[in-house]
């Protein structure tokens, strides 16, 4: 039994996966300006991964998915989040020192380079959520087929 879908689904998936990814990246990077943010955007990008998994099947996914890379990236996302939170440790944990007196990300509210550590955190959380959800999905899909 082949575990991938037909050619129509595959073609449509090829067309839509980049769009979903771009939309997710938009939601992540504009998290401090519009509704949305790291988790929502990351979940959207992970939706692209799920679409890939369903359309192209598990065997194709296994070729593209590296377990160590994804778990390391998830760790990196968490570490960047923690680092951004620790930047203002001189005053307090989670103190937004970049916004108050930082060299970057202290522009006018409403522009992309504003809001201090929030864009950094959004990117980190987006990375973490994307890799985490894709890993969870692949983990569940990879589960041993016990009934032959």
């Amino acid at each position: 039994m082949s575990d991938d879908m037909g050619v129509i689904v595959k073609t449509m998936a090829r067309a839509t996966i980049p769009l979903i990814g771009i939309f997710g990246a938009y939601v992540v990077s504009h998290g401090h300006l519009t509704p949305g943010g790291g988790f929502q955007g990351g979940a959207t990008i992970a939706g692209a991964g799920v679409l890939f998994l369903i359309a192209f099947g598990l065997s194709e996914m296994k070729k593209r998915y590296d377990k160590h890379l994804y778990s390391a990236l998830e760790g990196v996302g968490g570490l960047v989040f923690l680092g951004a939170a620790m930047l203002g440790l001189g005053t307090a944990f989670f103190y937004n020192t970049l916004w108050h007196n930082g060299p970057v990300f202290n522009g006018d509210p409403g522009t992309l380079l504003s809001a201090g550590y929030l864009p950094i955190m959004n990117l980190a959380v987006g990375l973490k959520v994307f890799t985490g959800l894709v890993s969870a999905m692949v983990g569940i899909a990879l589960y041993r087929r016990w009934k032959s």
């Binding site: 943010g37 988790f39 979940a43 959800l133 969870a136 983990g139 569940i140």
Partner: peptide, 17 residues
Amino acid sequence: VLTSIVIGVCVLALAMA
């Protein structure tokens, strides 16, 4: 609610597993 949804997603994934 957003935080709670994130927690809910974790619980959901674990429950499925």
